[in-house]
């Protein structure tokens, strides 16, 4: 099985990037072969729709699991359609996150990061 992690750098010791579409690298880890593939995130160069481009890459790479911090609604729609499970990062290194995932310690990221909520009556009422 392939697991994808959004990363700040092209190695397993790099920190996870909590952003998905604009993370510099996508790391793909093969749990059977124990091998890494490091790819530049195609979302990075996109003027718009970075999350969609990144999600498409995750789908194309046949990953079944993604570990990241924030997910926009468009990227989520693509990942959902492909049945890819998404887990929340704790902001550690790529290898630490993968270990945590294998141990079943990561929580599912089920909340789409709507632009931050809070401050002002209008949002409070809406909650």
């Amino acid at each position: 099985m392939r697991v994808c992690v959004s990363s700040t750098g092209p190695n397993a010791a790099a920190k996870v990037d909590s952003r998905f579409g604009r993370a510099p690298y996508l790391v793909f880890f093969d749990t059977e072969e124990q091998t890494y593939d490091f790819m530049e995130n195609p979302g990075l160069g996109s003027a718009h729709g970075a999350g969609i481009a990144a999600a498409q890459e995750v789908v194309n790479q046949k990953a079944e699991v993604l570990v990241t911090g924030n997910l926009g609604p468009n990227a989520k729609a693509v990942l959902d359609a492909a049945g890819i499970a998404v887990y929340q990062t704790d902001g550690r290194t790529v290898s630490d996150e993968l270990t945590a995932y294998k141990k079943g310690e990561l929580l599912p990221l089920d909340r789409v990061s709507a632009p931050h909520t809070g401050l002002g009556q209008q949002q409070r009422r809406a909650r």
Partner: peptide, 12 residues
């Protein structure tokens, strides 16, 4: 413009 994606056997 990343307006199209392919996932779950369909174009989105």
């Amino acid at each position: 413009f990343n307006a199209l994606a392919y996932a779950g056997q369909r174009i989105m």
